[in-house]
C-alpha cells in the first residue's frame, strides 16, 4: 500500500510528537512509518471483537497514597542544577503568554 499517509498527516504526527522535521526528514519518516503500519496491519487478521484491551498484565489498579508533601532532601538548588537556564531559583523559559 503506497502513500497511505498524506503529507498533512505526517505533519500532524510531527505536531503531536513535538518534532520539527525538514521536508527531507519528513519524507523519509513517512516512508518508515508506512512500512511499519503495513506490517502492523497484520493484527487485523485477528478477531478481537469481545476482547477487553489489556493495559496492564496484573490487576493492580488505583494505587494511591495520601496527598502529603514530602520535601526532597536535596533541596531546591539540586533540582535546578540540571536546568538549561535558571534564574533566582527558577527555571527560565521563553515568554509563554503574549
Amino acid at each position: 500500500m503506497a502513500n497511505r499517509i498524506s503529507a498533512g498527516e505526517m505533519e500532524y504526527a510531527g505536531i503531536l510528537a513535538k518534532l520539527s522535521l525538514t521536508p527531507e526528514e519528513q519524507k523519509e519518516a513517512g516512508k518508515d512509518l508506512e512500512q511499519m503500519l503495513n506490517y502492523i496491519d497484520k493484527l487485523n487478521e485477528l478477531n478481537t471483537e469481545d476482547i477487553e484491551p489489556m493495559f496492564h498484565v496484573f490487576p493492580v489498579c488505583n494505587v494511591f497514597r495520601n496527598d502529603e508533601a514530602r520535601p526532597y532532601e536535596g533541596g531546591r538548588n539540586k533540582i535546578l542544577e540540571n536546568a538549561p537556564e535558571k534564574r533566582e531559583g527558577r527555571f527560565v523559559v521563553p515568554k509563554t503568554v503574549e
Binding site: 502492523i40 493484527l43 487485523n44 485477528l46 478481537t48 476482547i51 477487553e52 484491551p53 489489556m54 493495559f55
Partner: peptide
Amino acid sequence: KALKTKAL
C-alpha cells in the same frame, strides 16, 4: 487493537 492482541 494492539492491547487486545496483548490480552490474547
